[in-house]
Simulated scan of single mutants.
Amino acid sequence: MAADKSRVGNLQMAATLYDRWAAQVKVSTEHADFFVRNLVAISAKKRIGLAVKQPLALTMTISETWLNTGGRGAWG
């Protein structure tokens, strides 16, 4: 979604957030020369899903900047 737009509405009625599993965080010093250089690689992930069941409960807003620039946005 562009920076000059937003979505508003009744999110509790419109969508459901499904949490697939708990967050996973992995930490390692075993990549290339990370141990020698005292570096740490961190990998984190979380699986979630968003199901929009009633899209009419949401609406898109457009900023005044978007309207004044003919739809090109602030950077276009």
Results as ranks from 00 to 15, higher is better:
residue 11 L to P: 01
residue 37 R to Q: 09
residue 38 N to D: 11
residue 73 G to R: 01
residue 64 E to S: 13
residue 69 T to V: 03
residue 26 K to F: 03
residue 35 F to Y: 15
residue 4 D to S: 10
residue 7 R to S: 05
residue 67 L to M: 02
residue 26 K to I: 10
residue 22 A to P: 13
residue 3 A to R: 11
residue 58 L to C: 03
residue 13 M to W: 02
residue 33 D to K: 06
residue 28 S to H: 00
residue 71 G to S: 04
residue 38 N to P: 00
residue 11 L to N: 04
residue 66 W to Y: 13
residue 34 F to K: 05
residue 67 L to V: 13
residue 47 R to N: 07
residue 25 V to Y: 10
residue 50 L to V: 15
residue 62 I to N: 04
residue 65 T to D: 09
residue 56 L to D: 13
residue 59 T to L: 00
residue 7 R to H: 11
residue 46 K to S: 00
residue 14 A to Q: 09
residue 7 R to Q: 10
residue 1 M to T: 06
residue 21 W to E: 10
residue 65 T to K: 10
residue 22 A to K: 14
residue 23 A to M: 15
residue 29 T to F: 11
residue 38 N to S: 05
residue 29 T to M: 08
residue 22 A to H: 05
residue 46 K to M: 00
residue 27 V to A: 06
residue 20 R to K: 09
residue 51 A to F: 12
residue 23 A to Y: 05
residue 40 V to C: 02
residue 22 A to E: 14
residue 62 I to L: 08
residue 20 R to Q: 14
residue 13 M to C: 11
residue 64 E to R: 06
residue 70 G to I: 04
residue 8 V to Q: 10
residue 34 F to I: 03
residue 61 T to Q: 07
residue 17 L to K: 11
residue 51 A to P: 02
residue 72 R to M: 04
residue 54 Q to K: 11
residue 73 G to V: 04
residue 50 L to H: 10
residue 30 E to C: 02
residue 73 G to M: 07
residue 67 L to S: 08
residue 8 V to A: 02
residue 49 G to W: 03
residue 33 D to S: 14
residue 16 T to H: 06
residue 51 A to W: 12
residue 17 L to R: 01
residue 59 T to F: 07
residue 70 G to Y: 03
residue 32 A to M: 11
residue 31 H to V: 09
residue 23 A to L: 06
residue 74 A to R: 11
residue 20 R to S: 08
residue 45 K to R: 14
residue 29 T to I: 04
residue 65 T to G: 05
residue 38 N to T: 05
residue 32 A to R: 13
residue 69 T to P: 00
residue 54 Q to H: 07
residue 74 A to E: 13
residue 28 S to F: 09
residue 40 V to L: 07
residue 20 R to L: 15
residue 50 L to Y: 01
residue 3 A to H: 11
residue 56 L to V: 12
residue 52 V to C: 05
residue 17 L to A: 06
residue 64 E to N: 03
residue 51 A to M: 13
residue 16 T to R: 07
residue 54 Q to R: 14
residue 19 D to H: 15
residue 52 V to A: 02
residue 62 I to M: 08
residue 46 K to N: 06
residue 24 Q to R: 15
residue 63 S to K: 02
residue 30 E to M: 06
residue 24 Q to V: 15
residue 63 S to W: 05
residue 21 W to V: 01
residue 17 L to V: 15
residue 20 R to E: 15
residue 51 A to R: 02
residue 33 D to C: 08
residue 18 Y to D: 06
residue 52 V to W: 11
residue 48 I to S: 08
residue 8 V to F: 08
residue 14 A to C: 14
residue 26 K to S: 12
residue 10 N to G: 06
residue 35 F to M: 14
residue 56 L to Y: 10
residue 55 P to H: 02
residue 5 K to A: 13
residue 70 G to K: 03
residue 71 G to I: 00
residue 65 T to W: 03
residue 42 I to K: 13
residue 38 N to G: 01
residue 72 R to K: 13
residue 10 N to L: 01
residue 46 K to R: 15
residue 67 L to N: 09
residue 18 Y to S: 03
residue 52 V to D: 00
residue 9 G to R: 01
residue 72 R to E: 12
residue 35 F to R: 09
residue 19 D to G: 08
residue 39 L to Y: 14
residue 23 A to N: 02
residue 66 W to L: 10
residue 73 G to W: 06
residue 13 M to P: 01
